[in-house]
Design a protein around this nucleic acid. Sequence first.
RNA 1: CGGGGAGUGGCGCAGUGGUAGCGCACCUGCUUUGGGGGCAGGCGGUCGGGGGUUCGAAUCCCCCCUCCCCGACCA
Length: 470
Amino acid sequence: MPRAPILTPRADDFPRWYQDVVAKAELADNGPVRGTMVIRPYGYAIWERIQQGLDARIKAAGAQNVYFPLMIPESYVHREAEHVEGFSPELAVVTHGGGRKLEEPAVLRPSSETVIAGYFAKWVQSYRDLPLLVNQWANVVRWELRPRLFLRTTEFLWQEGHTVHESEQDARRYALRILDEVYRDFMVEVLAVPVLMGRKTERERFAGATTTWTCEAMMSDGKALQMGTSHELGQNFSRAFGIEFQSETGESVHGWQTSWGASTRLVGGLVMAHGDDDGLRLPPRLAPIQVVVVLVRDENGTGPAAERLTSELASAGHRVELDAATDTSYGRRVTDWELKGVPVRIEIGPRDLAAGTVSLIRRDNGYRADIALDRVVVSVNAALEEAQAAMLADAEAQREQRTADVSSVAEAIEATKVGFARLSWGRLGTDGEAELAAAGVSVRCLLAADGGLPRPGGSAHDLAVVGRAY
RNA sequence: CGGGGAGUGGCGCAGUGGUAGCGCACCUGCUUUGGGGGCAGGCGGUCGGGGGUUCGAAUCCCCCCUCCCCGACCA
């Protein structure tokens, strides 16, 4: 007999499935103000793992953490024309404080380019001060008309990096370094989500940037999700805020800047990239709980044996939890651990113990085996490594299978019903891009002909990867 | 803001004029707990808000509010 579905099957209604998973895996709730989100302990544990992975890579790339204020004088946002134009529809503005109307309203940061630029102008005097590399972990507010938990909320958590460099080349090199060594590396190696690194079109470029680079992923329904972006800001904010330094030759020069960010959206991406009809599937390197030891029944010494196994696995360096809640039924507990996507489950009951074994079950593929008690740690090590690799390979295979090479707008629109379409950007052009947009399809990114990063200015041979996006 | 839909226990729903019910969840007890176990008992709702019609309104009328879905914006 098939199991009763716990979640709406993905094939029936993917958005509904997503909501079900977020609720039943206890990741988040809607907040009381429309568009806001309450992140629950398990969801926040996942975010903390994401933070750790990104933060370590950001520091390895030389940036230091800072904190700037939530409220920004409204006039700052207006200094960079394109920036304000891009953001004004989604600004939340504080008009009153201390019981009085404020002389100058303050906006809740939608991003911190402007407030940070004001201080960069103060801190940067000499080429010796450069490069200046900072990052902050913060909340930002962008008033969203159509919120979706994690994917698009009015308030969200992220990191935003901001840098100043001596030259355009230095800034570009750094923006691309972050894209590759921080974002791409983390997403592929930890999240097991393959990403395309490419350049955004003018239409999709960040408001105030000269060039926007992106990591784009495909979710398991074939739609695209931007997982991280890195912007070259040129001298736009430098000019607006007076970030000037004296060069080695004594000239006064405007700094060249970058900014880059990744957000709690990644949690949603993780859910949608790997989840199945039984719930979340977490890649082992990310999972807050990598192994759960399930005590099936507390009889004939199974309890102490389960405790011993748990501490052995913890000593071996795994994030492990013991489930000894035997007053809850076995089926319920197992279903819950599957919902939460714990990569490896070890089950121990009287039958196992009598045979001198435990059961090992992999969440990613359902593989199940009896393991001798003295082989548990080594078997778990192997299972975690294999699951990590298999999940990445699955996601890559799925993306390849759902990506089609096409040569017309009509074919692209058809192909993007199930995934990505790839076609010549030279042929598509901004007119083709507008036609696609009318059909709900966007250019996710541009790639060089060989699939690598395109040159910043572009080439006639560049490829456009198009799709429907979250 | 344009187009659809819905507001009834925590969640999902039924209830077209007679004083509110079901499933799940929750609480208590019992039960031989290996895939959301079984049995019994129980807690919990000013039916989104206001006004009106009526002997009587979740139900009919008027006004308001909120939420959800599709579109435009978007990490």
